[in-house]
Amino acid sequence: MSHAHHEVHYSNRTGWLRASVLGANDGILSVASLVIGVAASGAAPSVVLLTGIAGLVSGALSMAAGEYVSVQSQADTEQADLVKEQAELKRNPQFELKELTQIYVERGLTPTLAHEVAVQLTEKNALEAHARDEIGLSETLAAQPIHAAMASALSFTVGAIFPIVAAWLSPAHIAALVVGIVSTLALMISGGLSSYAGGVPLYKGIVRVTIGGILAMLVTAWIGSLFGTHV
């Protein structure tokens, strides 16, 4: 009996994974830093909580807008390359065929086989062949602005919930400490999940996310304690 063979690859996750990891880490770290800084200044618990909520709302919207603009710019560039390549295919198809053949030769095919492959792929879909093998574009890796924006905003919100809930439930005199501990654990989880989704060892994501996060929160707490409630 023959069994269907299906390999799971990680490259098709890069678009949403990048936006999700960036959003979650930013949600945890930026809101935690805000909350810790304000809490360390001696502000009232209501002010600390309001700061966290404001940071969540503004941060999620900012992340969504920024991610959309960034990825849309990439999509515009990709589209411009496709338009240019389509024009070249119409203007000089023989040159484009030779160009595609040479690409396959450089990848290890014999000139005869490379030419045959180039001809068949050109007959099937010339633009798709050139987009994939000459420009490096594919449907899997194509920029998707709306998906990236939604993933970024949602993951930011999920990440920001951890420090906000920690600030809400903890006593005022240890709020900064509790938020720091909870946020550090959340960063470790986020780093581990991103490594797992990306197919790399868990410790890599955990270490690189957590160390930077702890340093950022410590600096923010120090600044908040210096200025006090007069700022």
Rank of each mutant, 00 (worst) to 15 (best):
A148N: 11
Y68K: 06
L177A: 10
V182I: 11
T140M: 11
G66A: 07
V182D: 00
I103G: 11
L97W: 06
T184F: 08
I174K: 07
T101I: 05
E99H: 13
D81A: 15
I164Y: 01
H115T: 13
L193C: 07
G198T: 07
T140H: 09
Q72V: 00
F162D: 00
P145E: 06
Q74I: 10
A151T: 02
L137W: 01
Q72N: 15
L89G: 09
A118P: 07
I181A: 12
L82A: 12
G199F: 03
K124T: 12
E99W: 00
G192E: 00
Q120Y: 01
L193R: 02
S170H: 01
S138F: 03
L177F: 09
P145G: 08
L97K: 13
H147N: 13
A160S: 14
I189N: 00
V105Q: 14
K98A: 14
A80F: 10
A64N: 10
L121I: 07
A60K: 05
N125C: 05
Q120G: 01
N92H: 14
E85G: 05
V105C: 15
G59M: 09
Q94L: 13
D133G: 00
A153M: 14
A175G: 01
A176F: 05
N125I: 03
T140F: 06
Q74H: 06
K84G: 15
L82H: 06
Q74S: 13
V179N: 01
L137K: 02
A153C: 11
S58V: 15
Q74T: 12
E106H: 14
Q144C: 03
Y104F: 15
T157F: 07
A149I: 04
R91P: 00
T157C: 06
A65C: 13
L185Q: 02
E99L: 15
V69H: 07
L127T: 10
A176D: 08
P145T: 09
H130V: 09
T101K: 13
V165K: 03
A118Q: 04
A176I: 10
L193S: 03
F95N: 13
S183Y: 04
A131H: 07
V179M: 03
G59E: 09
S62G: 15
V200P: 03
A60M: 14
G192S: 00
A166H: 05
L97H: 13
A160V: 08
D76G: 04
Q74N: 11
Q102V: 10
E99N: 14
G136W: 01
V182K: 02
G191K: 06
S183R: 05
G136M: 02
A131N: 08
V117I: 14
E78C: 06
S70H: 09
Q94T: 12
A60W: 05
Y196D: 00
P171E: 06
A175P: 06
S70Q: 10
L89V: 08
E96F: 05
M150V: 15
E88K: 15
T157G: 12
E128T: 12
A80Y: 10
H130L: 13
A114D: 09
I146Q: 06
A186K: 02
H130W: 10
E78V: 07
R107A: 13
L141I: 07
V117L: 15
R107V: 00
D81I: 08
V69R: 08
T122E: 02
A166V: 05
T110N: 11
A167I: 06
A151M: 12
V182E: 00
H173L: 08
E99S: 14
E106T: 11
L177T: 12
A175D: 03
A114T: 10
G198R: 02
G192T: 04
